[in-house]
Design a protein around this nucleic acid. Structure first.
Lengths: 346, 346
DNA sequence: GACGGTCGTCGAAGCGCTTCGATATGCCGG
DNA sequence: CCGGCATATCGAAGCGCTTCGACGACCGTC
């Protein structure tokens, strides 16, 4: 309607800020200021501009905006897309991240860990993103020094051995381990076992696995319980074997902590077959997504993936505004008691 | 070393094309042509430029590049982050997409379906992405007309009722249903059942669920088998109940097709408890990720998430180059026979 | 009633890149 | 030995946006 809107391209309707300015009878800079709120604009002008924006269906061009403002309004989510990870947790987490980021008017670029340091470097150098969220951080993580070097705003999920100068969010897995053991102890069990992540996960130095184990052992020591811990591979058969040999060697164990998403089902299925009924002969408490535990009526310490994701984004946004953020944010575990744990006789 | 590299900003090392040009003693446009290969450049110059690129660690600024070239080199992956989805499949799929996209020098922007049409519109208008990959497409999907309207290059995973003018990739679920039934029939079973997705998934008109069911029924009709199909909710208890009532009503069923990731484990755990041993009394074939089936020694038609992801990206890339792509690409299902199916007596 | 101070708006200068002529150089055939 | 044609390179003009300095208009003030 006004002056020559569409450029040549087929379907290339691209409405520019100049179009809006013309439509509203103001300068382009004024439109920009209305949209960013960085300078005072009279109510009259603002309303007129906003009306034009709506009328034309204007959306600022992301590239141009990024170039001029030196902000992409995009954050990177670096996911561990390797095997052996607790898949649903990652998924829930990603959802929360995207949703929360959108609330701050940011989008999320998905990056896989296997592109590794080079990927981070590329993303950073190309100024594609303003900051990064790193999942599945290991105790000694090769990406951590790089992050420091790049001075790229970041938030880690999980935490490395040395978190100096970084921001980390995580469930307090050490405390989670303790909580599980305390619960079992409170029910009168004196001998407990931790069925953990696959051995590879420990070998990789993944924080949550180590910290949970440490928590279990610490609480056991403090409360004077006997505790054995062992990794647990995936696969129904492997689990059955590991579990059988565990109970064979330690027949007097009546409390079991399971921290391995994919093992939860098989463990519950296998125990009765080994003559241990839950909870009569064996109390089971898991560290896993609540959804999973709820289905199985399992007492658990839920992994609050959603909450972690939200927190992580919030922290990153704060960091992008150059506000100070705590180095370590640990979420307090809570225990959801269900029917898989009960008082023991010894 | 050369002339004034770093701008003022702390850590703002941003190396620009001008820096490279200066370092190599050529014009900026020459550097651009070396990098894009869009004009012939002498070997001598090219080598000198590439050396400078490496020496300075140059990475083109994504925003500037997008602005000038009108290509973002980013594709959007629109994921169904709602509940009731087969999570690990989605994950595998996402991995394949990211990996493949990187191979074509593209990045992936993660978008959730719940931002819905508005999200697509925004992304498109802001020219953040060059194309989109849509997962979990429903038979009547509200985003489909929008895609047509926006003339946004896209590839759908799954397919809508009307695929005209679009590109879709998917496992041939209809055929998968048939393959399962044919396998069971080949083993001599005359009465089979399909334990499908949760009722909500059918209600939503999700293609894969409907098509599998149709395939099962078609093959059964063709081969003269009796077939019953029923949805299957999540949760161990619900599954046990559904399964028990099914076998109660149809005690002579000896072939079971399971298409519900989260039901596979519980079904296998429940059958023996109901007095049906696998495969002696009941042959079970699943449509699920192969990894899951392999663990359980289950005969299955694997959902080739990785392959689908790769194909989808490849098609999208072709589309971005304005090459013609087929409207529908169906991957042929293959059957992996394991220990959960065996010949029946009737 | 001239002066300083806001307030609201404008114009212009880039941000770093691609791309389109234009120009310079070298080579060929006539 | 020159016109003509490739071939290799350069320079300049944007892409659409933000942001800075400037400037008019209007206010209250002494």
């Amino acid at each position: 309607m006004t002056t020559a809107p569409g450029r040549g391209r087929t379907g290339g309707d691209q409405v520019t800020i100049a179009d809006v300015a013309r439509h509203a009878g103001v300068a382009a800079s004024t439109v920009s200021y209305v949209l960013s709120g960085k300078r005072a604009i009279s109510a009259v002008t603002r309303d007129r501009v906003l009306a034009s924006v709506r009328a034309l269906g204007y959306h600022p061009n992301a590239g141009a905006r990024a170039l001029a403002s030196r902000k992409a309004n995009v954050i990177a989510l670096v996911l561990p897309l390797r095997t052996g990870m607790q898949v649903p947790v990652v998924m829930q987490f990603a959802t929360a991240v995207v949703t929360t980021a959108r609330r701050y008017d940011h989008d999320v670029l998905l990056v896989t860990s296997d592109e590794g340091p080079a990927g981070l470097r590329r993303i950073a150098a190309a100024a594609m993103v303003d900051g990064v969220l790193l999942m599945d951080v290991e105790l000694e993580d090769s990406r951590v020094p790089l992050l420091r070097e790049l001075a790229l705003p970041s938030v880690l999920i999980g935490h490395p051995a040395d978190a100096t100068g970084l921001a980390c969010v995580d469930l307090d897995f050490h405390r989670a381990g303790e909580v599980c053991v305390e619960h079992l102890a409170g029910l009168g069990h004196r001998r407990v076992a931790l069925l953990g992540a696959p051995a590879a996960v420990y070998a990789r130095g993944t924080g949550f696995a180590h910290r949970t184990r440490a928590g279990v052992l610490a609480a056991a020591a403090r409360l004077g319980l006997d505790a054995v811990t062992l990794p647990c591979e995936e696969g129904r058969a492997a689990i059955r074997r590991d579990l059988a040999s565990l109970l064979d060697r330690h027949p007097d164990i009546h409390g079991l902590v399971v921290q391995n998403e994919s093992a939860v089902g098989p463990v519950l299925a296998t125990l009765p077959a080994l003559g241990r009924h839950v909870p009569a002969d064996m109390s089971v408490v898991a560290v896993c997504p609540d959804q999973l535990a709820e289905q199985a009526g399992l007492t658990c310490v839920p992994v609050p993936a959603e909450e972690v994701g939200r927190q992580a984004v919030t922290l990153l946004m704060r960091r992008l505004r150059d506000e100070p953020v705590p180095e370590v944010t640990l979420l307090e575990p809570r225990l959801a008691v269900r029917d898989s744990t009960a008082g023991g006789s010894r």
